[in-house]
Every structure is written in structure tokens, then in C-alpha cells.
């Protein structure tokens, strides 16, 4: 039950992350290019907005890379090992990712907090308080760290219950399959 909740929340955030690319980056840039070409002026400061858009996309979408095992692992050697050794590698990989995710969220917090303390504003005429884009970025990365830390814990729990398939589903090395499905589904058009 909590499993599906974690996955669903991560997917919703990924939808938002993708939407930011289309509506927060591509659209404003297009508006600016057209207005520069036809009206000789920039209209919406897309240069700055789209940089913040990318940061928001990265923050919000990152947790989904954990629940869908998107991170590249070079596992052709490990995949040939017997299950106990392979499981140990899978667990280690999940733990290391959790540590890196936690560190990233921590450093992102410090950066956003320092911007807030200094009252930092963006460099363009918009003068956006930096704590807004950095805050969104941090919230996403915090959720990423949360999901990444839970992943090895949930995996161990499944292992204890003797659920090998569930363990594989959660942290097993299936990156290549997932990557391929991704490209193929994109080409065929998913439903």
C-alpha cells in the first residue's frame, strides 16, 4: 500500500517535471524567439526562466528514477553471479545511491538556505528571489532522498519475506531492459 503511494507520488512529480520542460522552458523560449524576431525585443526573460525550469525538472523528476530504476549500472558481470552475491551487489548499489541522494538533498538545502539568508535575487530584471527556484529544486531532491533511502530498506524486508521477485523488481539490475522499453514505447506510442 505504501509502496504504491511512493510510486504514484513519484510519477505525479515526474509528470510535473516533464510539464515544466514543455510549458516552463520550450514555450517561453519560443515566445522570446518570436518576439525578438518580429518585435525586436525579448518578451518573457525565457533565458532565466528556462534555467530555473530545468532545475525544477531535475528536482521533481529525480525520485521517479529510483522507483523505475533508471540509473545506469554496468551489470553484465554481476548479472551472471548466483542470487546471494547478486542480491548483495544490488543492495550495495541501492545503499550507495541512497547515501548520494541524501548528501545531494543536504547540500541543496544548505544552498537554498544560504540564498534565503542572504536575500539573494536573480540577476535579470525579474529579480526572482533565488529561494523560490532553489526551494522547488530542494523539495524534489528531498523526496528523492526519502525514496532512495527507503528502497534498500523495503528490499531487505521483501528478502526477509522470501519474495525474491519483489526484491528484483525493487532494486534488481534491470536497467538495460527498462531503458530499452523506454525507447521502444516512446517510438510505438504508449497508451
Amino acid at each position: 500500500m505504501t509502496d504504491t503511494l511512493i510510486e504514484n507520488v513519484s510519477r505525479w512529480l515526474a509528470w510535473a517535471a516533464g510539464a515544466v520542460i514543455l510549458f516552463g522552458c520550450a514555450l517561453p523560449i519560443t515566445v522570446d524567439v518570436l518576439s525578438r524576431y518580429f518585435l525586436n525585443r525579448s518578451a518573457v526573460e525565457s533565458f532565466e526562466i528556462s534555467g530555473f525550469g530545468l532545475a525544477a525538472c531535475i528536482g521533481l523528476g529525480m525520485a521517479h528514477t529510483v522507483t523505475t530504476k533508471a540509473h545506469i549500472r554496468v551489470d553484465f558481470a554481476v548479472a551472471r553471479l548466483p542470487f546471494p552475491l547478486r542480491a548483495a551487489c544490488d543492495l550495495l548499489a541501492a545503499c550507495v545511491l541512497a547515501v548520494v541522494a541524501g548528501a545531494l538533498a543536504w547540500f541543496a538545502w544548505k544552498t537554498a538556505a544560504q540564498s534565503y539568508a542572504m536575500g539573494a535575487q536573480s540577476m535579470s530584471l525579474l529579480r526572482i528571489p533565488m529561494v523560490i527556484p532553489q526551494g522547488i529544486w530542494w523539495v524534489g531532491l528531498f523526496w528523492f532522498a526519502f525514496v532512495a533511502v527507503l528502497a534498500p530498506l523495503r528490499a531487505v524486508l521483501r528478502l526477509v519475506r522470501g519474495d525474491r521477485e519483489g526484491f528484483n523488481e525493487l532494486v534488481g539490475s534491470a536497467d538495460i531492459n527498462a531503458e530499452i522499453d523506454e525507447a521502444v514505447h516512446a517510438a510505438e506510442g504508449r497508451t
Partner: peptide, 20 residues
């Protein structure tokens, strides 16, 4: 549906690359 699928796929690949 088409848009959401594209959003999800984009976020997934982008974040994977950007973490690297």
C-alpha cells in the same frame, strides 16, 4: 495520455542524465 507519457519518459531520462 500521450502528453503524460511523454512527460514521464522525459523526466526519467533527463534526471538520469543530469544526476551523472
Amino acid at each position: 495520455g500521450v502528453l503524460l507519457a511523454a512527460f514521464e519518459g522525459t523526466a526519467r531520462t533527463t534526471c538520469m542524465i543530469m544526476l551523472i
